[in-house]
């Protein structure tokens, strides 16, 4: 079976400084993949390479078996919440409509169907009733929900999110991940996060990136199996130091 994302022996560097080395990864959109790791470890760089915003130095990245830029209409990207342009004159509804850009006619305005989809997606992320608000009047968490609605409006098969909760309080973060978890029933979720808890509680696959990549599987059946066997388990220490942890967990015995 073809993987939705296939990365083989990927290398990348910024101005001669090596950022990613020999990355290999397979991903299928039924999974909730969390990319974690320290600041400057190359998480966002890897994400940008998956969607074709950056090109690898060596190695290959295949999205649905093709060059990422050729299938960019099949995926959606939710950027970090960094709106420097504080007064940007745009309504929530117009932001979500942007998701319909590649589906609608080039010169024509957005169609009725586009509007219907935009309303539907706002409802789906719990932002119904905010259509005519200025985007910058929203809180960080609400704004991220709008960006997720925009991503959903793209009809994407995989949604990529870059630190979507960086500016949100803890309760807001939990809501957000619960929403993503629900969405994961129909679309693939690939998320960059520095938060280990996310990886433990919501992800089914965790990629620890710090120049090199270490992949943890935390799918339901397996985590049960892991719990049965103290030598085969996943624990927070593993996630942080990016290698198999061999110590004995008393609580599992």
């Amino acid at each position: 079976m073809q993987n939705d994302i296939e990365i083989n022996n990927l290398f990348f560097s910024y101005d001669g400084t090596s950022v990613l080395e020999d990355i290999t990864l397979q991903y299928n959109s039924k999974d909730f993949l969390a990319i974690i790791g320290p600041n400057g470890g190359g998480k966002s760089t890897l994400l940008k390479m998956m969607i074709g915003l950056l090109k690898p130095l060596h190695g290959e990245v295949l999205l649905f078996g093709k060059n990422p830029l050729h299938v960019s209409h099949e995926i959606a990207y939710v950027p970090q919440d960094t709106i420097a342009n504080k007064d940007f004159p745009i309504k929530v509804l117009d932001v979500v409509l942007m998701g319909r850009l590649s589906k609608s006619k080039f010169f024509a305005p957005y169609s009725k169907e586009d509007y219907a989809i935009a309303y539907e997606m706002l409802d789906k992320v719990g932002m119904k009733g905010f259509e005519n608000q200025k985007i910058n009047a929203l809180s960080g968490g609400q704004r991220q929900r709008v960006f997720i609605a925009r991503a959903l409006a793209c009809d994407a098969k995989i949604i990529f999110l870059d630190e979507p909760t960086a500016s949100i309080d803890t309760a807001g973060q939990m809501n957000m991940f619960q929403l993503l978890k629900t969405l994961n029933k129909t679309v693939g979720i690939v998320i960059v996060s520095h938060d280990v808890n996310v990886a433990l509680n919501y992800a089914t696959k965790v990629a620890h990136v710090n120049k090199t990549l270490y992949l943890h599987d935390v799918s339901k059946e397996e985590s049960f199996a892991l719990a049965q066997n103290p030598k085969e388990h996943i624990c927070p220490i593993e996630l942080i130091c990016a290698r198999r942890c061999n110590h004995l967990h008393k609580e599992l015995l």
């Binding site: 995926i75 990207y77 950027p79 940007f88 745009i90 942007m98 850009l101 609608s104 925009r150």
Partner: peptide, 16 residues
């Protein structure tokens, strides 16, 4: 549409 999308979020517009 395209100008609005580019002004607001150029990377997203590019991917669309």
């Amino acid at each position: 549409k395209q100008l609005l999308a580019m002004s607001f979020d150029a990377q997203f517009a590019k991917l669309r």
